[in-house]
């Protein structure tokens, strides 16, 4: 194979897709697939550091995965219950529908009065339960949809106010680029110092997690090395072109979408020594926006309270625990 034809990211995704092909439901499959992608990427990265080229590293990583058919069988067995539940649900729903309409179905049949009363009662109860269930599901769906739309509007407004370039793609990731914001927070981690210019939080139970940090890992005198972009993992320091291509496929795939004059190419800007580049990616479905506005950089250490949250920043991560 010609080296130039070899797209490592595509190969990894295809391989992971093959392993997880039989898993149902799709949501579950996607989650496991991304777990495998992450695993293979780690292995490839490891072997590339050891000196192998992309193709050999990928081949080695696949070899280490083992017998694909066996893994597929094992995964199918483990997730068999989920598969059954996805089949059972529509069956139960259809069965309930039939029961709800049973009096109409049996209208031409002569049956005992007491039995008829019982059938009527059961069908009414089933119909009410079905109605409530459908309304509840629809309400939840519409609420999530409304939240998403309003959040996108909110973010768009913030972007317009701050003169950020706003983009929104079909993968439900948002990207906001900015260059000269004065709002920033400095978090000193154990190993790295992170400057956050603007961020969004994903709320899971009581824990606020930064899903994306428009951060760059710098030395203390603010000298960005490289800012990664738009991969579920945000904020890597990737020095080599091959690493960037491997870990930032969406950037390389979608960079042509950002050709507006005021848009920023984080890679180029970082390389020419820009001081500040903002990147924000969030999953807007269940996200909550929190914009930090300070006129000066604030130093926040593990356990400090900041804007009503407890901050901890172990290992360069920034999680925000809601104050109980």
């Amino acid at each position: 194979m010609d080296n130039s034809d070899f797209d490592i990211q595509k190969e990894i995704e295809a391989y992971a897709a093959h392993i997880t092909h039989d898993i149902r439901p799709i949501k579950k499959r996607e989650s496991i697939k991304s777990e495998f992608i992450s695993h293979i990427e780690d292995a490839v990265y490891h072997y590339m550091i050891s000196g192998l080229n992309e193709q050999d590293a990928f081949k080695r990583a696949c070899d280490e995965i083992g017998d694909v058919e066996k893994i597929k069988r094992m995964l199918t067995i483990v997730h068999k219950k989920d598969k059954i539940s996805t089949v059972l649900f529509p069956i139960i729903y259809c069965f309930a529908l039939i029961i709800a309409f049973l009096p109409f179905i049996l209208s031409s049949v002569k049956i005992d009065y007491i039995l008829e009363q019982w059938i009527n009662l059961i069908s009414v109860v089933t119909a009410i339960a079905l109605f409530c269930f459908t309304i509840l599901k629809s309400y939840k769906y519409l609420r999530a949809l409304f939240k998403r739309v309003s959040l996108i509007r909110k973010i768009k407004k913030i972007c317009q106010q701050n003169n950020y370039c706003f983009s929104y793609d079909r993968n439900y990731y948002l990207s906001i680029f900015g260059k000269s914001s004065k709002h920033e927070m400095k978090i000193i981690g154990k190993e790295k110092t992170i400057y956050i210019k603007m961020f969004a939080c994903l709320k899971r139970k009581d824990i606020y997690t930064l899903t994306s940090i428009n951060s760059f890992f710098t030395s203390n005198n603010v000298n960005p090395i490289f800012v990664s972009y738009d991969y579920p993992s945000i904020g890597s320091v990737l020095k080599k072109e091959s690493e960037r291509k491997m870990y930032l496929p969406r950037f390389y795939q979608s960079r042509n979408n950002y050709v507006k004059e005021d848009s920023i190419n984080p890679e180029v800007d970082a390389e020419i020594g820009a001081d500040v580049i903002n990147i924000l990616c969030i999953n807007p479905i269940s996200a909550k926006i929190e914009v930090v506005r300070t006129n000066r950089a604030e130093e926040v250490f593990d356990g400090d309270e900041f804007k009503g949250y407890i901050v901890y920043s172990g290992n360069g991560l920034c999680d925000f625990l809601k104050r109980m």
Binding site: S31, S34, E35, S38, E41, V78, K81, E191, T209, L210, I213, F217, S228, Y231, P232, S233, I234, G235, S236, V237, Y247, N315, G316, L317
Partner: peptide, 20 residues
């Protein structure tokens, strides 16, 4: 995980990558 002996969560790793 199904047996309730471990649980999973997603987190950004030291390398800045989202991992389970």
């Amino acid at each position: 995980e199904k047996d309730g002996l471990i649980k999973s969560y997603s987190k950004i790793s030291e390398q800045g990558r989202l991992r389970k």
